[in-house]
Nucleic acid binder design. Structure first.
Lengths: 262, 262
DNA sequence: CAAATGAAATTCTCAGACATTTACAAATCG
DNA sequence: CGATTTGTAAATGTCTGAGAATTTCATTTG
C-alpha cells in the first residue's frame, strides 16, 4: 500500500527534532525501518519495566494492528528482541511472546562471543584480557576467603590436583572449575558474570602444545596455596597468592598466544 | 561462501513418523525453527572467522535459495544477527548485508541495558555493582598513574571542580567524565568497556535529592587527591585514594538507592 | 479410567507482489 | 564544458493472504 506506514504508538514519541534531522551533508538515514521502530518501542516498554518478566505481549496479529504495520514487520521486530533475550516465543494454543527473564548465563554467553570476536580483530589484546581478569579475580579471591561456605570448600578441594590427570580435557575442566568456584564463593554474581567469559576467551587463545613440562605442577602448587588461604579464611593471604598465580600465568599466556605463533 | 546444507537438514530430521518412545510428557523441544537454524549457521560462519568484518553476505534471495527457505525466513534470521550487532544492512544498489565490526561501545551498551534489567529484578544487587566497580576502577586508577598521557591529564583537570557547578546535569556529566577519563587513561579498553555500564547502572539507582549538602565538596576533594597522584605518576597513592573515594561513595549509594525509598 | 480424537489458538513458513532507497551512468540544459 | 536532472538497476523494506505445524485442552471413545 502506502509507503512508510506510520508505525503507531500510544502517546509519546519525541517527534520533535524535525528541524535538525534532515539536511546535513552526509544525510543520515531519514527514518528507521518500521521493524526497527517497533522493536525499539517494545524494547523501551521492557527496559522501563512497563511490561515485566513473564508478561505476554499481544499476539502477532494484534501487534500488527496496534502498530499499524504488517505481521511480517512485527515478526522481524520480535526476532530482534528475542535475539537480545528480551522476549521468547512459544507456539501452540497457550503460546505467544513473553517478556524473558535475563539471567547471568545469557549475558555471560553474549560477552563470551563478543569478546572472542573483538580479541580476534585487534579490538582487545591478550594483555588487556589478562589485566582485566586479574582485576576481577584477585578481589574475588579475597571475598571468597571471607564468605566461603563449606560446600564451596569441599568442591574446590575436589578440583585441586590436576597435574597428574591424564585426560587433557578433564584437566582443563578441573582447572576451569577451580577458578569458577572461587568466583562463585565470592558471593558476587557480577564478578563471575564478567570474569568467566574473559577466562574462556583467554583459554581459546592458549596453545596447549606450547606449555612447559612442569607447567601443571606449578599450577597445582599455586592452587593449593590459594585454597589453603581461602579455607583458613585469610583474605590477605588468598589475595596475594592469587595475584602471584596470575602473574605467573601471564608469561605463559603471552608465550603461547596463538597470534604469536602463526 | 558455499557448502551450506539447506535448513531441511539431511538425514537427521524426524520428518514423518519416527514414532519412538518420545511422546511422553516431558517433550524436549523438537527442532529449532528454520529462522533460528539459518541464524545459527550464519552466526557460526562469523564467529569462526570464515566470513570476516566487512564481507557481504549473498543477498536475501540468494540466501533463501542456498538455505532452501523463503526470503521472509532469511530476513528473520538476519534480524536476529543484526540485533546482536553481528551484521548490518544497507539499502540501495550497493546495499546488502555485511559482517559488522563489533566495537566496544556496542558491547557496553548491551551490558548497560542487561545489567539495568537485572539490577531491577534482584538478579544483581547494588552491593554487587559497587564491589565490581571497585574491583575494576581501583586497578584502572593504578594503571592510569603509570600510563597517563598529557592529554588525559589536561582533560581530567578540566573536570575536576564540580561542587560549585550550578546546573545539575553538567555536574553529573563532569563527574562521569572524570571517572571515564581514568578508565581511558588506564590504557586498557576492556576495563572501561565493563566498568562504564556498571557506573551508569549505579547512577540510575541513585536518588539525587537524597545526597547530603556537602556531598559534592567531599567528591571534589577526593577527585583532587586522586588526580594529584595520577599526575605525579604515583600508582600506590592513586590506588589507595580511589579505594578510599569509592568506599565513601558506597555509603551514599546505599543510603540513596531508589529501592530503599519506595 | 485410559487412550484416542478433535478443536482452537498461536507461531511458523511460504509465495509473490510492490514500494523505497541508493549509487551510478546517461542525458539534458545553461 | 560543467552542473543538474533524469533514469535505471540492485538491493532491502513492506504488505497480503494463505496454509502448515505445534501445543494445549476438552471431548469422545474403548
Amino acid at each position: 500500500m502506502e509507503g512508510n506506514a506510520p508505525v503507531n504508538m500510544p502517546a509519546s514519541l519525541p517527534q520533535g527534532l524535525s528541524h535538525e534531522a534532515g539536511r546535513s551533508s552526509l544525510s543520515v538515514n531519514r527514518i528507521q525501518p518500521a521493524y526497527a521502530q517497533v522493536a525499539s518501542q517494545l524494547r523501551d516498554l521492557i527496559v522501563t519495566g512497563q511490561i515485566q518478566t513473564g508478561d505476554h505481549l499481544p499476539n502477532e496479529s494484534e501487534l500488527a494492528t496496534i502498530f499499524g504495520v504488517s505481521r511480517s514487520t512485527v515478526r522481524e521486530a520480535l526476532r530482534s528482541l528475542a535475539a537480545q533475550s528480551l522476549v521468547y516465543t512459544k507456539r501452540g494454543v497457550t503460546g505467544g511472546t513473553f517478556v524473558a527473564e535475563l539471567d547471568a548465563e545469557t549475558v555471560s554467553a553474549y560477552l563470551r562471543t563478543s569478546l572472542g570476536l573483538m580479541s580476534g580483530s585487534a579490538g582487545v589484546s591478550v594483555a588487556e584480557l589478562l589485566e582485566t581478569r586479574a582485576a576481577l579475580e584477585v578481589p574475588a579471591t579475597r571475598l571468597a576467603a571471607i564468605r566461603r561456605t563449606d560446600g564451596a570448600i569441599t568442591e574446590m578441594e575436589q578440583n585441586l590436583s590436576i597435574s597428574n590427570v591424564e585426560d587433557e580435557a578433564v584437566r582443563y575442566a578441573k582447572n576451569s572449575r577451580f577458578h569458577e568456584l572461587i568466583l562463585e564463593a565470592s558471593g558476587n554474581r557480577l564478578l563471575g558474570l564478567v570474569a568467566s567469559p574473559i577466562f574462556d576467551v583467554l583459554k581459546s587463545r592458549f596453545r596447549r602444545e606450547d606449555v612447559e613440562k612442569n607447567y601443571w605442577d606449578r599450577v597445582d602448587n599455586d592452587h593449593r596455596e590459594i585454597f589453603s588461604h581461602i579455607e583458613a579464611g585469610d583474605p590477605d593471604g588468598a589475595e596475594s597468592a592469587m595475584r602471584a598465580h596470575l602473574r605467573r600465568l601471564e608469561s605463559t599466556y603471552e608465550a603461547t598466544d596463538i597470534t604469536a605463533h602463526p
